[in-house]
Nucleic acid binder design. Structure first.
Lengths: 121, 121
DNA sequence: ATAGTTTGTACTCGATACGCGTACTTTTTT
DNA sequence: AAAAAAGTACGCGTATCGAGTACAAACTAT
């Protein structure tokens, strides 16, 4: 259930012992959480999320977003979502508006490099 | 630790028994979670979040946002944020791009109502 | 107001899982 | 190759769990 613990710890190049020390628990206890042999208390769970600077939902595998609140959003993916997530002036963006926007910005981004190339010459 | 459970349940006008039934646990078990006298297993915790359509972080009081993942975002507020949260084609949107986007959509929105008024006449 | 029903609270019990310490194995470093 | 570090597995005493039940409080119907 807490498969992601191992991943998060290795990314930071921490040993089981170092990680356990930071949490104030025994190495075997922490190892138990990673292996799934043991479950942390709710307090320990929140401490794990804080230590790894992520959400409990991510630790539990309920979401792939490493941090909640203002999630990182790839606009091209918004079109396919059922729930509207972007608002302007209190009104939800329509799929057409999003599509127009994507085209608009892509065009601007294509124009920019060309101009800078011209200026460099 | 799970103070919010009571709040969420009452909003929905569910009794302890009804709620427990939906979770497939005993009334006394569920009551124990609300009162803080008992802690749910991680599996039960995720089931609670699903039943109440919220995040585990919210249940644990780690965030005030009732739903994580793709949070509802008012674009005008993004400009002031330190962390970039909108990406297009894998690249973060610059403040200029966001400003242009806001202007672009606002212009479109102003044009639309006028046309529909004309058509209605 | 009273009786019946529903809901919430408190308690007990048996079973299970916890955190910890330790030993052993594997991997890494010297 | 030897030593050190890191990871894995195990046993123990204790705490906590889920469930069932009894009781109290709140709500509803008459």
């Amino acid at each position: 259930m807490l498969d992601r613990l191992s991943e998060l710890r290795k990314e930071r190049k921490w040993s089981l012992q170092e990680t356990a020390d930071q949490l104030g628990i025994a190495k075997s206890t922490y190892a138990g959480y990673e292996s799934g042999y043991r479950e942390p208390s709710l307090l320990s769970l929140t401490q794990l999320a804080e230590l790894f600077e992520t959400t409990v939902d991510f630790l539990l595998g309920r979401t792939d977003e490493t941090y909640g609140g203002h999630g990182v959003t790839e606009i091209t993916e918004i079109i396919h979502q059922k729930n509207v997530s972007l608002f302007l002036d209190g009104k939800p963006l329509t799929p057409d508006e999003i599509i127009d926007f994507i085209a608009f910005i892509r065009t601007k981004r294509e124009l920019k490099p060309k101009r800078s190339l011209v200026l460099e010459k």
